[in-house]
Design a protein around this nucleic acid. Sequence first.
DNA 1: ACCCCTGTTCGGCG
DNA 2: CCGCCGAACAGGGG
Length: 265
Amino acid sequence: MPELAEVEFFRKQWDCGLGQKIIAVQLHPRKRIFRGTDARRIVDLLSGRRLLRSFARGKQMLFEFSAGNWIGVHLGMSGKLRTEPAGFRPEKHDHFVLQQLQQALVLRDARLFGRVRFHHGRSEPEWWRAGGPDISADKFDRRFLNAFLDRHARAPIKAIVLMQNGFAGIGNWMADEILWRAKIAPSVLAGALSAAQRARLLRETRFVASELLRIIGPDFSDPPADWLIHQKWKRKGVCPRHRSSLRHETIGGRTTAWCPRCQKS
DNA sequence: ACCCCTGTTCGGCG
DNA sequence: CCGCCGAACAGGGG
């Protein structure tokens, strides 16, 4: 599920625990979600610490705890954050639980494609520093976009829009929404995009990202009925502009829905 | 039973 | 180095 706006929604689910101590950590160190991390250190170092603040960038989240402790969370395909009443007992897929006096902060991830990382140090972990700019940041501009498109000039634009170091937080359905709005066929090679297409791509990427943050971010509301997303998974989905049939094909290894009538090469 | 999936990484190939 | 492909990860839903 989680793309940029949903990640922001889930990040906020733990806000009610801000400023409060972690009195117990519940996890299974061998679970795949902790791959590359010594989960036992999380148990040792997080207990007794306070949750201070949290950040989201693209599909990544970062939670800062007192005494220089940091938890990075990527939700993968099926990860979700939520809270439960104090004393909550983890269920089958609740792989990471931070117990506080007032509530429990819970990460559930049935498929375990997500990832939890730990960093102990004075400043943000190195793996948080890496990665592309926020789409809402000034740095995500025409110059950045041009350089990124030219660096991957021979890949179809659909594949480009899914690259997290260029389009942070864009996932499969947001990518289709953006390309549909920008009127660009998903198979067009990045290097072949005209200046006008690049300008539309930049504008619609920003538009879709900011609109979804506004709509989904606070309470997971639905996008308006005339968005492509509502048609994309229907077998007989139609273009919201003129009701003609959408085409479905695999591009960049991912199922893609698009409108041949309004999306041009 | 079978096929699909809002993600990422890896090895092999050209 | 670039890009593509399929597989793998693990489970739920149609």
